[in-house]
């Protein structure tokens, strides 16, 4: 890894969902990036990109402004969510313009251009598609709609997964079909969403995989919630949780999920302490 990359000032935008409900994915992101030699900062003023609001028709220009203020000082922002990354790229300038704030739109475009979805950051910025991971399980990968169609991550996540040691990666049938999450779509059109979910679960179960992974915890919350309800015995993990897994540290496959109180902090003990965050901006 070159010196240039080491001197990059990299921030993690964890997303509101991971911050609130899926901290494992956030911890895995920190661990993976540090293993690859990156010093990661987590500015505490961050909250939410506003995607859920925007996709429901509520344009929260203040959240756009907040994202821009918090992250404009960094060289790169890593987002372990294709959906949020796509919203930051495409929706932030639009929301700013809808509010008549052209200056913010221009700043949002600038911050958006250095905001990277995780697999894009690993491959395009760090230049690696082998992160030294080990995960001896049968895994299937669901390419989320926003990762493929809005963000265009292409086969980056699969390239990363193929290089994981011990993995038995199986293709998901009808992988190009939406899982039916769609944010508030799942609430506003519950019957249609449930029908799409049922088909996606059938496809997942057909693969015989132990683990379903994806680059968006939101879609996984929907599919995983359905799989748990029907007791399918398939677990969901964020892509980064597999990539962070190595032979001698961090084994989400071995960890008893969240059934043991206090287990999560224990298994995230690592050699390196997280980088001290300087005074949070904003």
């Amino acid at each position: 890894m070159s010196n240039d990359r080491e001197t990059l000032r990299v921030a993690l935008f964890a997303t509101c969902l991971i911050d609130a409900l899926f901290p494992d994915a956030g911890r895995a992101t920190v661990q993976l990036l540090e293993r690859l030699g990156q010093r990661v900062e987590f500015p505490l003023e961050q909250t939410c990109c506003g995607q859920m609001h925007a996709n429901s028709g509520y344009f929260e220009v203040e959240l756009v402004g907040r994202y821009v203020d918090v992250f404009s000082r960094y060289d790169a922002v890593v987002v372990p969510s294709a959906s949020c990354a796509a919203s930051i790229h495409h929706q932030h300038p639009m929301i700013a313009r809808a509010a008549g704030d052209e200056a913010l739109a221009v700043r949002a475009e600038s911050v958006g251009s250095k905001t990277y979805e995780l697999s894009q950051f690993l491959i395009d910025v760090l230049g690696t598609d082998d992160v030294g991971a080990y995960f001896p399980h049968r895994v299937t990968y669901h390419p989320t709609c926003h990762s493929v169609r809005l963000l265009g991550v292409g086969d980056r996540p699969l390239r990363l997964l193929r290089n994981v040691r011990g993995i038995d990666l199986v293709e998901l049938p009808r992988w190009d079909e939406c899982c039916g999450f769609g944010g508030t779509f799942a609430i506003k059109n519950p019957d249609t969403s449930a029908a799409m979910l049922a088909d996606k679960m059938d496809a997942v179960i057909d693969t015989g995989a132990e683990v379903l992974c994806a680059g968006d915890r939101s879609c996984l919350m929907h599919i995983g919630g359905g799989l748990e309800r029907i007791r399918a015995g398939v677990r969901t993990l964020h892509l980064v949780e597999i990539l962070a897994s190595t032979e001698d540290e961090y084994r989400p496959d071995r960890a008893p999920a969240r059934s043991q109180p206090g287990a999560a902090p224990a298994r995230s003990q690592r050699g390196a302490a997280p980088a001290a965050t300087e005074e949070p901006p904003g």
Binding site: D19, A20, L44, R258
Partner: peptide, 10 residues
């Protein structure tokens, strides 16, 4: 739900 948020852990 997790026992603590990502930010609390951080």
């Amino acid at each position: 739900p997790p026992d603590q948020s990502f930010r609390d852990w951080w």
